[in-house]
Each structure stands twice: as structure tokens, then as C-alpha cells.
Design a protein around this nucleic acid. Structure first.
Lengths: 168, 168
DNA sequence: CGCCTGGGTTCTGTAACTGAACTCATGTAG
DNA sequence: CTACATGAGTTCAGTTACAGAACCCAGGCG
């Protein structure tokens, strides 16, 4: 049986993972952002197997996160570029990297840091309305227009929302 | 051969994925946050196989993102609770859900929305210093103290950082 | 001619995941 | 006192997904 398809889940995390949650995919997107954008450079940087990279890049192009473009004079040399949806995912990956730096700190410290308009920047998840950082304690989930009893909300739909921050 | 171990990568995204990037793991953390915290409830909500859930929960406990706690009167009924590192990951998953709502919009709209201190909230990645949202264009990667030529930075380490926003 | 580069495809194993059945202890309804 | 339900798993068979190496092809270079 194939790995479970997330696309019918009533959960946006699941549908995001369906297109970027495969093994290697976030690292490929990270490398494209950093300018490692040709097939052989990706193989060399990541150590991913060529067969798998072929499929991952094909899926990313099919899902619209990435496009393939000819470069140079020959018409069989390609570069992979982030499309708007792929570019919009980079800050989320940066926030994930910041989480890794906090909780899975490597020997020697963070391998990569960020700057934003000249100053130091730790990518932090905040609120679109008030710009303050959000935490588990201050983030309250509410059912949206697409809420339904489906995989990913089978149990949640059957009872009022109580998060681990608000319950006993 | 086992799936590639990310833990030696010189990349914080990779080390984050090593503990939360397995298939199902982010959805398990999401459910724990939403209060779906017992073994059978997780099986019912997600449809994950029981054998795999056993391993995933064990890994999460071993990695310190989750702890297992007895509840009720019997001593063989357990509830899984988020530890600080697990709780700190929830905003990142919320930002990922927001990305999914933007780019992989489901029929009927978002299944789950968020509020923050009484107002509507779209979890957005911002800068820790100036609180402004960060985008690919304004986010500049710089080598950190732990930068080295290793898997995940083999190609990057050999040349100056040029991102897809600044090149061509 | 032989080798290098870039971008793949093909092949062979092994590990990961699915799904169903089973265990075991306790509690409860008939 | 038998039957069934609940909670938390374990065991097992079957199918994918992934790793790693080898190979292919076109063009350029020495």
C-alpha cells in the first residue's frame, strides 16, 4: 500500500505536507533559495540519489513550486527556480531552521544565520494583525469555513476545541 | 539502506526535519496541540496505522518533544503531552498551515483558522528585531559560527552566498 | 581518441509504511 | 457469568519508497 495521501485531510498542515513534506523536499527548496539550482550541484550538495532527485524536482514542478529553465547556450542545461508559492515557503523553512538552532543546537553553533534590512534576524512566527510573536499559549484555533468531519479532524469535529494550553 | 540520516548535515532545516520531518510526525504534534492526545484518539483522528504510531510517539518522547503521562485511575492509560520544544514548534506548524491555506486552498476554504488575543491572526514569519514580516527578498543568509563544508553545504561552502533573490 | 560535464535513466536491494489481526487487562451490560 | 467494549499496544504479510551504483547520451576539450 502506498504511503497515505494527505490531500483529502481537513487540515492545512496535511495539505502543505503533501507537496513539501516528502523526505528531501524542504532541503531541495532551501538549496534553490541559496542558489544551488542545477541537478548536479544539488546531488553534490545534498548527497541525494539521482533517481530520487529526478522525481522530487518533477513533483515540485508539477505542483507549481518550482520551474525549470534553460540556461547557457545549449538547450539541454537546466536550472531550477522558485515560483511564488515556493518563494513564500522559504520564510517558513527559515522559522523551522531557527527552531532547530534553539532545540537541536549543533556542535559549533548555527551553520547559517539571517539578516533582514541590515540587522540580525531570527525568523519568528508572529500575528498578521498585531505583529507580536505568537506562542502555543496565545494562539487559539477556531473552526474555519472548510471545517468538516474528515481524516485529520475526525475526533476534533466531534467535540469542542480544547488545546493543550487551555485544558487542565 | 536506511533513509538518509540528516543529523550530520550542516543545516538547521535538516536537523529539524530529523526529529519532526517524518511522515505523520507534524500531524501528530498538531493533534496533541488540539487536545487529541491518547493513542486510540490519534488512530481514529488521523487514520495512521497503530504500529507506526507506536514508533512515532516513541521517537517523539525519546527526542524530548513529547512526554507520556498516566491519566485516570488505572496505571496503564496514557496521554501524550507537548514538552517545551514541542510547544515551540506549534507556531511554525501554524505558519505552514497558513501557507497551505494560501497556496493549496481546499474546496470550502480553510478548515481551521486562528485567533490571537481576541483578533484574527494569520501566522506570519517576521523578524525578531523589527517585527516586520520577512520575505525571500528581504531575508539575507549569512554564514554562522557552525558553518563548515559538510553535507548540506558542500556546494554552498565552496562559493560566496548568492540567493535566488539577489542573482540574475 | 579519450575524458569531462550536465542531466538524467535503469537496476538491485533494503527499509519504511499500510492494514488487518491479535494480545492483554479491566470494566460493564445483559 | 458470559459477551462485549475500551485503551494501548504487538505481530505479521505485502507493497512502496529510498539508497547507491552503474549506465546512457550529447557536446566540448586536449
Amino acid at each position: 500500500m502506498p504511503r497515505t495521501d494527505y490531500s483529502d485531510f481537513a487540515c492545512s498542515v496535511a495539505r502543505s505536507l503533501e507537496v513539501m513534506g516528502q523526505w528531501w523536499t524542504p532541503l531541495i527548496l532551501r538549496d534553490l533559495y541559496l542558489g544551488v539550482d542545477t541537478f548536479d550541484d544539488l546531488v553534490a550538495d545534498l548527497g541525494i540519489s539521482r533517481s530520487l532527485l529526478t522525481r522530487r524536482l518533477g513533483d515540485l514542478v508539477a505542483d507549481g513550486l518550482v520551474r525549470r529553465e534553460v540556461y547557457g547556450e545549449r538547450d539541454d542545461r537546466y536550472r531550477y527556480l522558485l515560483e511564488p508559492s515556493g518563494r513564500d515557503l522559504i520564510p517558513v523553512l527559515a522559522a523551522l531552521a531557527a527552531w532547530g538552532d534553539r532545540w537541536q543546537t549543533p556542535a559549533g553553533g548555527a551553520p547559517l544565520l539571517f539578516e533582514h534590512e541590515g540587522h540580525e534576524c531570527v525568523p519568528t512566527v508572529g500575528c498578521s494583525t498585531c505583529s507580536q510573536p505568537v506562542t502555543v499559549e496565545t494562539l487559539v484555533p477556531v473552526p474555519g469555513p472548510g471545517a468538516r468531519a474528515a481524516r485529520g479532524t475526525a475526533v476534533v469535529a466531534a467535540r469542542p476545541l480544547r488545546t493543550q494550553s487551555t485544558e487542565g
